[in-house]
Write a protein that binds this DNA or RNA. Structure first.
Lengths: 232, 232
DNA sequence: CGTCATATTGACTTTAGTCAATAGAAGTGG
DNA sequence: CCACTTCTATTGACTAAAGTCAATATGACG
């Protein structure tokens, strides 16, 4: 059930059988959420962290005017709010962008695991650090890239992140987000999101039909995005 | 020498005398940097982390076109790249925005400290988590707030962060950044940064003369920014 | 006093947002 | 399978926010 986590952490370094078994036997509450559901609410003080087992989720904030900013996309294997272990109050919400299976793991269980297996503790810290690096890259996109480049950058990033958890088919992956969701990722309006996607299509960089995104020219897409995969 | 760090960590929870003494006696290389200097270069694999002792520094990324995005401002007491402990390659640079005194502490020393004093380990983790929360708040600003609100938000945030390390004089603090620097924080052009600051002045929300920022009306500034201090 | 960096202003262009209408797709119940 | 509703995508016309370029001021400093 926690297999996606094992797969993710192994990117950090091979895990021993003991470690794998320890992860697999961690007590976790398995839950399902419908698209649009809040998985964790902003302002909560959770005693568990949420691991995405399948589906897509996002961290987000709502602003006074009703606008939403999506802060991160969480794919299977991502511990969506591991940092809530160290925060008294969560500063963002977590919502299901598609039907999601999640595993809720208590902070105590994570601490116990970290205490018994120092390399797992380090792997968790590494995971949080990479999460921060992604956040910084998004910040850079939002601050200094055009929306066209931002879209190219995200689609490049997701290609690698989805591939890392085995969810790609060559250069395609499922991206079941509405254009309104994408707009909230990019920090632009829905109308503009639509136009940007059309521009990427026109330039034969991507295809986005149904809910499948295909990168037509990985090199060129990365080039327009100024995408440098080192941070992942 | 590491006193600003002690002060900062005590916001997390009171430290014992042992813990304070342990911090104070950590081996650290004290260095000074001139305004504009790189303190840590993007792409480095540092074996030390940098604590800001005095002055202002920033995390930043340079893009292909030569534009810069400032990702975080680091005030005294901030461990500017604690996360580099867990990253093989640093995804951003660290630069001095003013003359800076910094203490370089080896990752090994930090690990040793964390091993001997679990509460310090937790305090470091807490610090990184708050750092992430600030990053998310900035992302929200950049994505969904107008540049006017973004400026109001930053000045509100800095008032609290500077106050937390004793660097305010009632509602004033030193902000020795050029408008070009601020523009790179907000993700806008210098010209626009200038206009936004003038607008804030015109509306009698702030004063920014010489290198001192004064908040004239804390409540109203927070209100226009939709500023909620919980995340800090 | 002259030099360099920073700040300010004006005129104009580009990017993105808003509002509103229309077109498509997916899901529902009969 | 069809009619209907609803959500999503697309388009056009117009407005607003922000960028660019270039000139001018202002300030710090040797």
């Amino acid at each position: 059930m926690l297999y996606p986590l094992v797969r993710k952490l192994e990117r950090y370094g091979l895990l021993s059988e003991h470690e794998v078994r320890a992860i697999q036997s961690v007590p976790a509450r398995l839950q399902e959420h419908e698209r649009g559901d809040d998985i964790v609410r902003q302002g909560d003080s959770p005693s568990e962290s949420v691991l995405i087992v399948s589906g897509l989720a996002c961290r987000f904030k709502l602003l006074r005017g009703g606008t939403r900013q999506i802060l991160a996309l969480q794919v299977p294997g991502d511990f969506a709010d591991l940092h809530s272990m160290y925060l008294r109050v969560l500063d963002h919400g977590l919502a299901a962008l598609t039907h999601c299976k999640v595993a809720r793991v208590s902070h105590d269980a994570i601490r116990a695991l970290s205490d018994s297996y120092p390399r797992l503790a380090h792997a968790f810290a590494w995971d949080m650090a990479v999460d921060g690096a992604i956040q910084r890259e998004w910040m850079t996109s939002t601050g200094r890239r055009t929306s066209y480049q931002r879209a190219a950058h995200l689609f490049s990033e997701l290609l690698l992140r989805m591939r890392a958890v085995g969810l790609t088919d060559s250069d395609s992956y499922e991206l079941p987000l509405s254009q309104a969701d994408l707009a909230d990722v990019f920090g632009i309006s829905t109308v503009h999101a639509n136009r940007v996607i059309q521009d990427l299509r026109r330039d034969r960089l991507i295809t986005l039909q149904g809910k499948v995104l295909t990168v037509l020219d990985v090199e060129r897409l990365r080039d327009v995005a100024d995408f440098e995969p080192t941070y992942l």
